[in-house]
Design a protein around this nucleic acid. Structure first.
Lengths: 239, 239
DNA sequence: CACGATTTGTACGTATGTATC
DNA sequence: AGATACATACGTACAAATCGT
């Protein structure tokens, strides 16, 4: 037996990560226009002071996102915006507030639609999964890491109940961003009643889905997210 | 001067691409559960019959998506689903119909919300950009590649008018998937009046945004997408 | 058309820091 | 503490494709 730290966690920082992020950001920020040629690998090696191995690894990631394309014998070129093969959340926001606002503005219509579809299509297994996540949140200590995970799993379970893989994948993808958001909310507020309110709102969503009421589920989801968002904005303002 | 083929296009297939896709798919398909350890780099080299260089490049892409994490001195581990750092569309659908249906089911609420926000927030520049894309589509030959691009740019311009970068990025990301969809629709139908109908629907959306009517814009977008989707399903059935 | 220069793709060897036993 | 396994990083070499002359 060993200490067994969570192996799913990230390891120590690597050079390729930083360089990939820097290059990618400079492109996303519009420093290069579509079709423009980037410096050669050798030039990038000198610019960042690393070996070609690291540069190639960094470029590999950017290529995987469809941000650039490489042509053997020719060079590296920035792809057209419509060729992008992956969606990521922009990380550089001027403030935490604008970050959360922008995130929730996209999240809300998606989750409302998910709730609608889940209410219409859920099976017994789907409902059991949603209920289980709900119960796990009730049993969890106030805003413990387990409670946060249960919160995320509740929303993910609803996405699964849509029986559309895109919703499930999108919700799982948003989870990493939302986890930070939830942590921030907890740190800012420190109000224990937030858990009770959240559990209550989740229960409303669950009941609406259970009775196959799409609009009720969407509305319950709407007010839940609205509360979560404004809770971020005004942590000291009670409901 | 040279022939200057479009450098933004993809190059020839590479080993690292295939291997990355195979490994990634086997994980996404659930062959490995979260936290499980993958074979070592050396083992993967032997399994695929390539050098470590190629394996490392393939792994690099999977890591960039947050699907796996590597720990120096320990090994490679599959990440929890909630740690995913990028969203991609699943590619293996049993039919083209289910692919389009699933895609539009996610697209619809997002684009309706985008139209709502665009109607409320657009500036003169935003409106000019949307109008320009609309005009480009009118001038384009029936379903030429330029026409398809203009169609995508129309929707992207609306996303830009939300002044929320997530909408713009998400719309650009969906564009690559939608381009194939539009091409398929054109190939299936071959009805020239589709362009006229599409232009008309775009005009309705544009007018609603112009008069700052969020609900009107959302509704116009809804019926537009509904028509586009069902046009896919029943190519021979007139409106 | 041909040739050489440039650039990306692939392969191998070696050294080093880290984790695990 | 020592040994082993593993990922990270560097350097070199060659193959394949492209581009300019």
């Amino acid at each position: 037996m060993s200490v067994q730290a969570d192996k799913a966690a990230a390891g120590r920082p690597r050079k390729a990560d930083d360089i990939a992020e820097k290059i990618s950001e400079s492109i996303l920020a519009g420093k290069f226009e579509a079709g423009a040629r980037l410096p050669t690998e050798k030039a990038l090696c000198e610019q960042f002071g690393v070996s070609r191995t690291v540069i190639r690894e960094a470029i590999s990631r950017i290529k995987a996102d469809g941000v650039v394309n490489s042509l053997q014998g020719s060079g590296l070129y920035v792809a057209h915006p419509f060729q992008r093969r992956s969606f990521k959340f922009d990380q550089n926001f001027e403030s935490e507030l604008s970050r959360v606002t922008g995130l929730f503005e996209l999240r809300e219509p998606v989750e409302m639609a998910a709730a609608r579809l889940a209410a219409a299509r859920h099976t017994r297994e789907d409902l059991a999964r949603i209920s289980a996540a709900h119960a796990a949140m009730i049993n969890a200590a106030d805003w413990s890491e387990e409670g946060v995970t249960a919160d995320l799993e509740f929303h993910h379970a609803i996405a699964l109940a849509t029986h559309n893989v895109h919703y499930a994948n999108f919700m799982a993808f948003m989870a990493s961003e939302l986890r930070d958001t939830i942590r921030t909310a907890r740190a800012q507020s420190g109000r224990p009643e937030i858990k009770r309110i959240t559990v209550e709102q989740h229960a409303r969503i669950l009941r609406a889905i259970e009775r196959r009421d799409p609009e009720g589920a969407a509305l319950a989801m709407h007010s839940h997210l609205e509360h979560a968002r404004t809770g971020q904005k005004f942590p000291d303002q009670p409901e």
